[in-house]
Design a protein around this nucleic acid. Structure first.
Length: 201
DNA sequence: AACCTAACCAACCGCCGGCGT
DNA sequence: GACGCCGGCGGTTGGTTAGGT
């Protein structure tokens, strides 16, 4: 429908977030709470689009997030839920409150997919998958932190695939030349992610 | 020591549904 | 009822790092 982009692409900064930006974002959300993302870049002066702010918050800055080192238990849950729900990462993430959908998605794509492939290749000789529950949906609902899988979140995206030729436009080079090239890949989550009142992880 | 390749992961993009007007 | 905006989701990219040769 020719909808305009979520944000004016001109003057919007892209690429990795700097610690300074993180601080600004976190302190704003501490004061105002998450939500109304549109207002965030306006009120904070961050040269980021609202989506970018939300993503940064939910995937990285949000308190209570655990990163890396998925336990075998978590792996099991993810594998099981993926078989039940498919690639509904947000739904899967709702069963693992300490993990983000992005993290789970990445972990699935980089680790679990291969692992399962390998296991399948080995046949059923070793360790068959965890004993199947009586009812898949039931099990999912019984998992800790389960969120009801109402249709609300069952988005129909099957027919929405982009054309396979989609390519990032040249101007969309993510890492702006001004970004510090030596920025650590996985900077330690800043101390400010621990909030008064929020249990430390 | 230098180069090459594979793996990892943060972040971007486009689309959809819900909600307000 | 129609339209437009916003938030959220899933797929994908590409820079960085680690491991191998």
């Amino acid at each position: 429908m020719g909808r305009p982009p979520c944000c004016d692409k001109v003057g919007v900064k892209k690429g990795p977030w700097t610690p300074e930006e993180d601080i600004i974002l976190v302190s704003y959300i501490q004061e105002n709470g998450p939500g109304n993302w549109r207002a965030v870049p306006i009120n904070t002066g961050l040269m980021r689009c609202s989506k970018s702010c939300r993503l940064r918050w939910t995937n990285y800055l949000r308190p209570g997030i655990r990163r890396g080192n998925f336990t075998t238990h978590e792996e099991g849950i993810i594998v099981h839920l993926q078989s039940l729900l498919g690639n509904r990462w947000a739904a899967i993430a709702s069963y693992l409150p300490q993990r983000t959908d992005n993290d789970i998605k990445n972990y699935w794509n980089t680790h679990l997919k291969k692992k399962l492939k390998k296991q399948q290749a080995m046949g059923a000789i070793f360790a068959p998958p965890p004993p199947p529950p009586s009812s898949s949906a039931e099990t999912a609902a019984n998992l800790p932190g389960a969120v009801h899988l109402d249709n609300h979140h069952h988005r129909r995206r099957a027919a929405t695939r982009r054309s396979p030729s989609r390519r990032r436009s040249p101007c969309a080079a993510r890492h702006s030349p001004t970004s510090p090239p030596t920025a650590p890949r996985r900077p330690t989550p800043p101390a400010w992610t621990t909030y008064p009142g929020s249990s430390t992880v």
